[in-house]
Design a binder for these strands. Structure first.
Lengths: 156, 156
DNA sequence: ATCACTTGTAACCATTATAGTTACAGGATT
DNA sequence: AATCCTGTAACTATAATGGTTACAAGTGAT
């Protein structure tokens, strides 16, 4: 199965916090941008908080990103919300018959190769900072359609 | 969630077919090595067959690997049994509010980055052939424990 | 032609993760 | 005190996985 959408939502939330850093966004407002339930947002923000990427306080709106977004990578975010996958992105069938030459050794053999593939993916994520993501968002938005529909003011 | 164990089982099956290429293994025998149900094995072998990695015939035991295992990579196997993940390893929340600057652009932005990370992982898998896996299995097995317990003859 | 054996597949089940929802205790601000 | 917010528990629907039973249909030997 695919990696959950928590990762993409988490990046969305962090980007929004950065762009609106002078406002105090409630989980309700953020949920309006993500278009989901506010509990889903609070759940993910709870993970980001636990991972030390943002600072939240019970009862008070407006989470604060804990360091410059040029120092937060996609890998940081990924690991914060996909904790289980840190150990093993790939599941390995772990009941193979030890009396069989293949069954006895396959697990260890695959472990090595799978870890290497996983690390390659993680390294790519580590090479992208939230800074770059936010820049991408802003650059894309600067595209001016031939027939303008909304102004930036009308958007959040 | 993690990538399913079908991948590891598929590699197991292919390795077993290679090592036992002079015998005609039934799905029942293979299931004995993997230590699972024979239907699970047939299901996965069905995918390998459909992907053109092995040739099976209804009613007759003994699947045949369709090309030299030096020309089959882990990526080939992965794509054969994790068809869904070929498009998108990462799920992206696709209901973001288009009236928000972030919501409007986040999907496309992440798409680019996620694809790159996915490709990096796939490239690692593409760099490993079944030949290497089988070699690994055999090399590991040649380790001689200080107190020998079973001989290779006793194993499958 | 029959018999034993096999594959391929449908159908079903238990388990698990996800994402959404309601509800509410408790902190914070005015 | 009143209001707004977070954090979290509990519940739901949905979907994927892996295992299981069952069986139709193909194969090959006798």
């Amino acid at each position: 199965m695919a990696i959950s959408s928590r990762f993409s939502v988490a990046v969305h939330i962090l980007s929004l916090l950065e762009i609106s850093k002078n406002e105090r966004l409630t989980s309700e407002i953020i949920a309006g941008s993500v278009n989901t339930n506010s509990v889903v947002v609070r759940r993910i923000m709870g993970m980001l908080n636990k991972a030390g990427l943002i600072n939240t306080s019970p009862g008070v709106a407006g989470a604060i990103i804990s360091r410059p977004i040029s120092q937060i990578t996609l890998l940081d975010v990924y690991l914060a919300v996909e904790v289980d996958l840190q150990d093993h992105l790939f599941s390995i069938h772990d009941k193979a018959n030890p009396n069989c030459l293949v069954g006895k050794n396959i697990q260890h053999t695959l472990e090595q190769r799978f870890t290497q593939a996983q690390r390659a993916m993680e390294n790519e994520l580590a090479n992208v900072t939230l800074d770059q993501i936010v820049s991408d968002l802003l650059v894309q938005d600067s595209f001016i359609p031939s027939v303008p529909t909304t102004t930036n003011k009308e958007q959040l």
